[in-house]
Design a protein around this nucleic acid. Structure first.
Lengths: 121, 121
DNA sequence: CTCGATGCAAAAGATTTGCACCCGA
DNA sequence: TCGGGTGCAAATCTTTTGCATCGAG
């Protein structure tokens, strides 16, 4: 890794490791015991992303980050309570590229929207 | 449909119909012959979204909209030139829900990132 | 005529950036 | 020590909202 392991970086990574759900910068900022600036949270998340320590997904103009484990995964988002549930990655079928077989895939992002059991009432 | 067909709405829908790629609010605003306010663009896109005339996807904190045809589809985004290429929808395998079989899916969004043939140099 | 749609301005929300000071290696 | 990291403030970018006026049905 091409960066220093500072206290704020350690705290953010620990937090993402403990919560097993995607968190946005604001949530991380609020959850940290010791306060660091929101801009530092953003700067470090960006760094983690570049170094493949975390993945990012967007929900309504907001970026959410989750720690990368060995296996790639996706999330279902409940439109009622906004809770997220992990789902395994069904690997992307490259046959679907159609006319674009020469496209070099580097990553993919799948988000499923719906309602969890508690929110269906 | 529960809304009036005004000139601005017609223009936006025509534009989305012609371009077969997702466009963001700013792009739509710029491409329209007759200028309308950006807030009007946003208000109408929101309306179309609620009425299932268009779909939305997020790329780097920005919402992109594309017209809904009969078949659901997804897009590959080139990280080099930012062009987008349509790919057909491989229907989501609900077996992947795992512990969450009771989750009621309303939609899903898949985005593939990579490099198109021209950008691989 | 009536209520929804738009122009316009301003606010709100998310993220980025500049700069001086600080600290990890 | 030294160059990267952080605090802090301010800017930027995207989207939303309030309100008076306008226009489609």
């Amino acid at each position: 890794m091409k960066f220093r392991l500072t206290k704020s970086r350690e705290m953010i990574l620990n937090l993402l490791n403990n919560k097993q759900k995607p968190l946005n910068a604001e949530m991380i900022y609020e959850l940290l015991d010791e306060k660091i600036y929101l801009s530092t949270v953003y700067r470090n998340l960006e760094l983690f992303l570049e170094n493949n320590l975390v993945s990012r997904l967007f929900i309504n103009n907001t970026a959410y980050y989750y720690i990368n484990k060995t296996d790639h995964k996706h999330f279902m988002v409940c439109l009622g309570c906004h809770d997220m549930f992990e789902i395994p990655c069904s690997h992307f079928d490259e046959g679907l590229l159609g006319d674009h077989q020469d496209f070099k895939i580097s990553s993919h992002e799948l988000t499923v929207y719906g309602y969890c059991s508690s929110c269906q009432l």
